Amino acid sequence: MSSHQHDPGEQGPAEDRAHQGEDLAALLSRLLDQTSGRNQKDLAAAAGIPYATVNAWMNRTRGTSRIDPDKLRALREVFRSWGVSVKVSDFFAAAGQPVPGPTDVEREARLLKLYRQLPEERQRDLVRDAEAMLRVSRVS
């Protein structure tokens, strides 16, 4: 494994601390270094973000505090697809944005997982409660 490749299981608390305070330009540069032969243009194309925008972020000529959260998630997904281990919270922190709560899909998956762990009688209770909450929300 070369110094530019990254073992996904390698990241630990010491590495997390080493990158705290990293801005988006530094994060993107570090992550690109962990890919084999990928560059800003590749990243922009794969994430569906104009190259000029990615380049401006990396050259620190464009602010990052108003980046659409979906673009930050897209960047993370590109790096994950390239085999680089990185958390979505790293992108939000580097852009100077608060990490938003779970997406609708994540919330639904969590709810379904909890539902499936309940005994059948409690599942029925939960469905009744949810239907009652829906009725109340329609009235409000």
Rank of each mutant, 00 (worst) to 15 (best):
Q97F: 06
P50N: 05
G101F: 03
P100S: 04
A132H: 12
D23Q: 06
R107A: 10
V78A: 00
S89T: 07
D125K: 12
A44V: 01
L114I: 13
A44W: 02
K41C: 11
V127Y: 04
D7C: 09
S2E: 14
S65L: 14
D129V: 15
R66A: 12
M1A: 09
S140Y: 14
P8D: 07
R116N: 12
K41R: 15
L24P: 01
G101H: 04
G21Q: 06
R138D: 09
E131I: 14
D129P: 11
V99R: 02
R107M: 11
P100C: 01
G37D: 04
K71R: 09
R124M: 08
A74P: 01
K87E: 12
R138Q: 12
R76H: 07
G96Y: 08
Q40N: 06
P8S: 05
K113N: 12
V84E: 00
P100W: 02
A45P: 03
R122H: 11
G63K: 06
R128A: 13
I67Q: 03
V139M: 15
A74W: 05
Y51G: 07
M58A: 05
A26W: 06
S36R: 13
Q34C: 10
P69F: 06
A56C: 04
D33L: 11
L27Q: 03
E131Y: 11
S3M: 15
S36Q: 14
S137R: 13
D33K: 10
P8Y: 04
V84W: 00
D104Q: 15
R76F: 03
F79V: 00
K41G: 12
P98T: 05
K41V: 12
W57Q: 00
A132Q: 12
A130Q: 12
S137K: 11
Q97D: 07
I67G: 01
E15H: 15
E120R: 14
R110W: 08
S29V: 09
Q20M: 15
E10L: 13
I67M: 05
A45F: 08
P100I: 04
L134S: 10
L27C: 05
A130Y: 11
Q34A: 08
L31M: 02
L134N: 08
R62Q: 07
A74G: 04
V84D: 00
R122V: 12
G101K: 02
S85C: 10
A52S: 14
L112C: 10
A93V: 05
A47W: 02
D104R: 15
D68H: 14
L126M: 08
L111G: 11
A46D: 02
Q5M: 13
R138E: 12
S137I: 11
H6P: 11
A46Q: 05
A26G: 11
V84G: 02
T53M: 03
E120Y: 13
L31K: 01
R76K: 13
V84F: 00
R73F: 08
Y51T: 10
S3T: 15
R128L: 11
A26V: 07
K41M: 14
P69L: 04
P100N: 03
T64G: 03
L114T: 14
A45V: 10
E15N: 10
R62K: 09
I67F: 06
T35G: 02
K87Y: 09
P8H: 06
P102C: 07
R38L: 05
R73T: 02
E121C: 07
Q117C: 09
E22A: 09
R107C: 10
L111A: 15
D70R: 12
D23M: 05
